[in-house]
Nucleic acid binder design. Structure first.
Lengths: 201, 201
DNA sequence: AATTAGTTTAACCGTTTAGTTAATTACTAT
DNA sequence: ATAGTAATTAACTAAACGGTTAAACTAATT
């Protein structure tokens, strides 16, 4: 059974692929057209300019990436369960979309203001609930007294970096794709264990 | 006292700045020339092509980045001291050169084979000593039984990612440069503490 | 003062690339 | 069937960009 994609979908898929790998500047409209199997003029027919096409991809990526990143944080579940849930869900997502982190990092690196306004962080409190939860846990003596931001930074670092740095890790440890995947699966449990061992008094 | 840079040094400084921020594709030779305060033709007089100029910057970066990354690993000091030394040295380096990790990641991402041959990892064993040291520590029962690669990946992640993701962290936590720096300084001790808490039986 | 080698510049060239145009084909509703 | 609209293409344009050239300037050497 062969699924026929609409032209617009074909363009999205091709543009995503090229932009992920080469960025806005490195990508060529002709290359995207070729990969989509269409004429270059058709690209401009659907998305008037390169910037608009790039913006459409960015919007799509942001819509999946940030919700997955933030959704768990404000859930109403115990602290420890939250960390286990986060790493499990997030690493699952990263295994499916390994190029997104690097894409987002470069995006925000080259255009912090645009990303800021795109996501207007001021409106929704990203980590207010988690911040409060950590404060309560510290006061109750369940975890040691650490800057709550250090906790979040550490968990994100441990989860995301291996995917951003995967080409380097593959070289250093001489890993093939399968081995790399296995190590990432293991991290779903290693990360929360590490964090809890650190935070337990 | 004003130090007069040679033209070549001025080009290096300008090219580094532009390439760090915009990458090979995003950088313009004219822009580099302007920043260096010279004519564009002079750029081609010193470094014949854009690729050669980029390659010169890459070489310079690799010469400082990788030694700092790997040197501590094979030192002949106790395991715990090694972790403390690494985070201290490495975060110091990253504070001084915050743009290098992202630059290197993109480099290796877009051209893994070139980087591989550039550094010929096969010749010098990057982590052989550390691997053996971890094995001994596990057998002696000093640390729990974990894949040694997970340990290294975790330490690198915890140290490097905050700098790669700094623009995002600054948005999420509403940090200015000073606060960010303070948090990174704190991590010099937090990271080894976290790792040791995890590894202690 | 003349010679020479290295340095710097303004003007130019050829190619690549994003974007346009005008004409053609496929589809849809009457 | 046909008119009208949407989708698609080949050919073209204008601008940006990497790179070249030839001439001018500088400083050391004879």
């Amino acid at each position: 059974m062969k699924i026929e994609l609409t032209t617009e979908e074909k363009i999205y898929e091709a543009a995503k692929e090229i932009f992920y790998r080469k960025g806005l500047d490195g990508a060529r409209m002709q290359e995207i057209a070729d990969l989509a199997g269409i004429n270059k003029a058709l690209l401009h027919y659907y998305f008037r300019t390169k910037e608009k096409l790039f913006g459409a991809i960015v919007k799509r990526v942001a819509e999946v990436f940030f919700p997955v990143l933030f959704s768990t944080w404000n859930m109403d579940i115990p602290f420890e369960a939250k960390i286990y849930t986060f790493t499990d869900k997030y690493i699952d997502f990263l295994i499916k979309h390994p190029f997104i982190p690097n894409f987002v990092i470069n995006l925000i690196h080259q255009n912090p203001d645009k990303v800021k306004s795109l996501l207007n962080f001021d409106k929704l409190p990203i980590s207010a609930q988690l911040e409060e939860q950590i404060r309560v846990e510290i006061e109750a003596g369940n975890i040691i007294d650490v800057d709550w931001r250090q906790i979040i930074i550490s968990i994100i670092s441990l989860s995301v970096f291996p995917f951003i740095g995967s080409p380097m890790l593959k070289i250093i440890f001489k890993l093939d794709d399968e081995e790399f995947l296995k190590i990432m699966e293991e991290r779903k449990l290693i990360i929360p264990k590490m964090v809890m061992a650190w935070l337990k008094p």
